[in-house]
């Protein structure tokens, strides 16, 4: 053979062939396994053991599925599951609906729209815990600036004690989420709207479709895979809601805003029942696991296109 500057490939074993990428991956993999897989497995084991931190320092005896049975007979757990479900539906509908509205309004090339688009990411960058405090301040039923604006527009709003009312308290927490997410979702959807070629819509216009028909027959179907991804993503983050519950209501009034994460937190951190809290947290892992699988499937479908 003619001599080349590149050495000919040597035959290698399967493992050695892939040694280079594995070596590159090792540090990150180690960090991720130690900080996600280890705690997940540890929590799973603990969920089968009796362990109250106020009684013993070390984990106690194995009690089998006892703590899972307790989860599914615990009214306060079901309450938090229901609260989380309501919260997820409210915040997904409002965030995605408003996000789509914002995207459609800003889907043009005027200077005002360009400026608005540039500022859309700001709310998302605000710490969620702070969002809770900020909205709690603005909706203070006596002095809050939003409260006073609403009282002027809607006379009946004058009587509402936003965080003292079970329904409105959950709505306020949802609004803190919507404030951050709707603009971000609008940005994602604007990306999708941009990839719809203007010819498609022009063709529809020439065929006599009005704006309403153009949206439902052309834009919406093309946007649907993206909308699906956004809905799942928002749902997953809504199920994980925690920060704003702590900083607005602390779960109240009563247990009206106790989300699943908050419930697990109060069992583990406040009541120091680590075993039970671990069982609750694994129930949350499973719920999110289902959502995550659906999300990954939706994403794979989008990628395939």
């Amino acid at each position: 053979m003619v001599a080349t500057t590149v050495p000919p490939p040597r035959p290698r074993s399967r493992m050695r062939k892939h040694a280079v990428p594995y070596l590159h991956l090792a540090p990150a993999l180690l960090a991720v396994v130690l900080t996600t897989v280890y705690p997940l497995v540890s929590a799973l084991i603990t969920s089968f053991r009796h362990w109250r931190l106020n009684e013993t320092r070390e984990a106690g005896e194995f009690v089998g599925l006892e703590q899972y049975q307790r989860v599914f007979t615990d009214d306060t757990f079901f309450n938090s599951a229901l609260v989380t479900l309501q919260f997820t539906v409210i915040s997904v509908v409002l965030s995605v609906g408003l996000g789509l509205g914002i995207a459609l309004i800003l889907n043009n090339r005027t200077r005002l729209s360009a400026l608005t688009k540039a500022l859309l990411i700001l709310p998302f960058a605000v710490a969620p815990a702070l969002k809770g405090f900020s909205w709690r301040f603005m909706l203070n039923p006596d002095t809050g600036v939003y409260d006073q604006m609403l009282d002027t527009v809607l006379p009946f709003a004058d009587d509402i004690n936003w965080l003292g009312d079970p329904f409105w308290a959950l709505m306020v927490i949802a609004l803190t989420e919507v404030w951050g997410w709707a603009p971000l979702i609008a940005l994602m959807l604007l990306g999708g709207l941009n990839s719809i070629s203007p010819e498609v819509r022009e063709a529809a216009t020439i065929d006599g479709a009005n704006a309403w028909q153009r949206f439902w027959r052309v834009t919406f179907p093309l946007l649907r895979p993206l909308l699906l991804i956004v809905i799942f993503l928002k749902a997953v983050f809504s199920v994980k809601i925690f920060d704003q519950v702590v900083t607005t209501t602390g779960g109240g009034p009563g247990r009206a805003t106790e989300s699943l994460n908050f419930f697990a937190y109060s069992q583990g951190f406040t009541f120091l029942d680590i075993g039970y809290a671990s069982a609750v947290s694994w129930v949350i892992v499973l719920v999110l696991g289902v959502l995550a699988t659906m999300y990954l499937i939706a994403m794979a479908k989008q990628e395939a296109k």
Partner: peptide, 18 residues
């Protein structure tokens, strides 16, 4: 790697707490 983003914080925080 994508899936890790769906792990609820409590399931990580509790074991690390102990």
């Amino acid at each position: 790697i994508v899936a890790t983003q769906f792990i609820p914080g409590v399931a990580i925080a509790l074991p690390f707490l102990t």
